Amino acid sequence: MDPRHIVMVGYDGAELLDIACVTSTFGLANTIGQLSPGYRVSLATLGGRPIRCDSGLVVEAQLTLERLTGPLDTVIVSGGFGHERAADNALVVAHVRRLARESRRIASVCTGATVLAATGLLDGRRATTHWRFAPRLASRYHDVRVDSAPIFIREGRVATAAGVTSALDLTLAFVEEDHGPDLARQVARDLVTYLQRPGNQAQMSVYVAPPAPDNDVVRRAVDHVLTHLDGDLSTARVADAVGVSPRHLTRLFLRELGDPPARFIRCARVDAAARLLDSTDLPMPEVATRSGFGSAEALRQAFVARFRMPPAKYRAVSRRPAPETPEPERAMSG
């Protein structure tokens, strides 16, 4: 049997970590699993030229994108700050679209979803990308159902992964699909990463505060929300706290944050609950109370709507396992 040929598509301005997460994971699977045949991993670029990554490092390509033909196992498009230039390049788009027809799986990592969207492969599909770039992707490609919450999404043979290191999670899922969960767990341990982090787990943006709004009223309103999550945060009450009308506050939130106050507040409460679930052993009713939900059931409904999993499952998969306690050495008999 021939090796499974994995092709990474790169371009100037690609993110080196996007490429390395994929290529190193498959390479480690070869080594740990002693796979025969294993994975053959290549980087393809236009003209087979070296690419300059976001970091400034130059990476050599092994294949010329225009000359590459299938059948291939998996084609994965890298992300990076050059993603929109790549998506506007008709040659890149045409060859990615062609190779998708000649491969078993087609995927993107991070902002590489922009290139897949340009090919039309994501039309009518649910897809993810780095949370910071999700609004831009949604506004540019109206036929793509952009979901910025999960770390990766699989829809049949098409997959999209979120920001940067989520490429590890998607690649581990591919290894598990190809060779079983035991090898995937061994590779994850050697990579010192989460074990079997599921695709619908939230992106780490849950823990990253958004930039402070430029508008002083919105900034004060956000500060009020984040310091009173367990209180009355109706739009009228928040508007009163910052001295404007509810209608004016709604206009400002939509302009500055892209969401009305009620949606922003709900997301802030879910994010606060996620932090409590990940960092404490508080029972679910207490988590609900502290994060401003009236009941554990209200918290559950909000979590399922946001992350497509209940809070109990989120806690189970997001927390790092406790370190194993080594067995005491037995005294040697003499």
Rank of each mutant, 00 (worst) to 15 (best):
A134G: 05
A173W: 12
G292F: 13
G38S: 07
A149D: 02
E60Q: 08
E66R: 04
I153A: 05
R255W: 14
A322G: 13
V317W: 06
P181L: 07
L249R: 04
Q201P: 05
S205C: 09
V9L: 05
L254E: 12
R197C: 13
P311G: 05
P326M: 02
P261V: 13
F303W: 06
A305L: 11
G156E: 00
H130T: 03
V206M: 10
I153N: 03
A173C: 02
T165Q: 00
V225S: 06
R98D: 02
L252R: 09
L172H: 14
M204P: 03
E102D: 07
G231K: 07
A202D: 02
P37L: 08
P326K: 00
Y314H: 11
P210V: 00
R319Y: 15
M284P: 05
S166E: 01
R85H: 13
D240N: 05
V75R: 02
D214M: 11
I106V: 15
S333K: 11
A113V: 09
I32E: 03
D12S: 12
L282C: 11
L91C: 14
N200E: 01
E327N: 00
G112L: 01
S245W: 07
H95C: 14
P285N: 00
S318T: 15
D214S: 09
V115A: 06
L72P: 15
V175G: 07
A167W: 11
T193P: 01
R237P: 12
V222T: 12
Q201N: 08
S291I: 13
R105N: 14
S279F: 15
P323H: 05
N89D: 14
D230F: 15
A161C: 07
H228I: 12
L191K: 06
D216R: 04
I6A: 02
E177K: 03
L116I: 13
A162M: 06
A20R: 10
I151A: 05
V206D: 04
T111R: 04
A90Q: 05
R126L: 08
L299E: 12
V304R: 01
D73S: 13
C53F: 04
V144Y: 09
D240E: 07
E327M: 03
V146C: 11
I151H: 02
P210S: 02
T171D: 05
R319N: 12
I51F: 13
H5E: 02
V9N: 03
T64R: 10
E297R: 07
A212I: 08
V218Q: 01
V164G: 13
L249Q: 12
A331H: 03
A149K: 00
C53T: 08
H228T: 14
G120F: 11
T325A: 15
G33E: 01
D216S: 08
A86N: 08
I6W: 13
